[in-house]
Amino acid sequence: MEFRDFHPTNAPASRARRPAAQAPSGEAHGLWRTLPLEGAFEVVYEDARGVWTTRILDARELKLGPGRTLLGGTDRAHGLYRGLRADRIRRLTEPAGGTRIETGILDWLLARADAQRRARGGRQRPRAA
C-alpha cells in the first residue's frame, strides 16, 4: 500500500482551504510581550514537582504571556538562561538594595521594569520575543 491509497490527491477536500486571518496590528508580534529588566536577585523557587530551590539570577527580562509571566535571566550557578514562572517564586531578595519580597512579587517586578524603562527615557527598540 502507498500513501496515496489513504490520502488520494484528486479527492475533494473535506475543508475549504483559505489563508490564515491576519492578526490585528497590536498582536503582530505574538501574544507574548517582553519588558527589559536588569538586576541580580536571589530567588526561592518552587519547581513543578514541589521542590524548593534557591537560585541567584542575573535578570534580563520579564515576559508577559497568556496565563503566565516569566522572569528570565542567567542562573549564576550554572551559567544558563532560565525562565522562572513568577507565580512559583516564593521569595525574591535583591542583595544590592536589601529588598526582600514574599508577597506581591509579580507586582513588584512589573513596577521595577516600569521604573527602569522610565529611567532610560522610555526610548528603546522593541525586542523580539
Rank of each mutant, 00 (worst) to 15 (best):
E2C: 01
F3M: 11
F3R: 13
R4I: 13
D5P: 00
H7Q: 03
P8T: 03
T9R: 13
N10R: 09
A11P: 01
A11I: 01
S14C: 06
S14F: 04
S14M: 03
R15L: 15
A16I: 08
A20Q: 07
P24Y: 01
P24Q: 09
E27C: 08
A28L: 12
A28Q: 12
A28I: 07
W32Q: 07
R33T: 13
T34Q: 07
P36V: 02
L37V: 04
G39H: 14
A40R: 15
A40W: 06
F41I: 07
E42N: 14
E42A: 08
V43R: 01
V43I: 15
V43M: 03
V44P: 00
Y45M: 11
Y45W: 07
A48C: 01
A48D: 08
A48N: 03
G50N: 01
W52C: 05
W52H: 09
W52F: 11
T54Y: 00
R55L: 14
R55A: 10
I56Y: 06
L57G: 03
L57M: 06
L62H: 02
L64M: 08
L64F: 01
G65S: 09
G65H: 00
P66E: 15
P66D: 15
G67D: 10
G67K: 10
G67A: 06
G67F: 02
R68T: 06
L70I: 05
L71Y: 06
G72Q: 11
T74A: 04
T74I: 14
D75T: 00
H78Y: 09
H78V: 05
Y81D: 12
R82E: 05
R82Y: 08
L84P: 02
R85M: 03
R85N: 10
A86F: 00
D87S: 05
I89N: 02
R90H: 10
R90N: 12
R90Q: 14
L92G: 04
T93L: 07
T93H: 15
T93M: 10
T93E: 15
P95M: 07
P95F: 05
A96T: 13
A96E: 12
G98R: 11
G98K: 04
T99Q: 13
E102D: 14
G104M: 06
G104H: 10
I105V: 12
I105K: 01
D107R: 11
W108I: 04
W108G: 00
L110M: 10
A111I: 05
A111C: 02
R112W: 03
D114W: 04
A115H: 01
R117D: 09
R118V: 03
R118D: 05
R120W: 05
R120D: 14
R120I: 03
G121M: 01
G122Y: 04
G122N: 04
R123P: 02
R123M: 11
R123K: 12
Q124A: 15
R125D: 12
P126M: 03
R127Q: 13
A128G: 14
A128D: 14
A129S: 13
A129D: 15
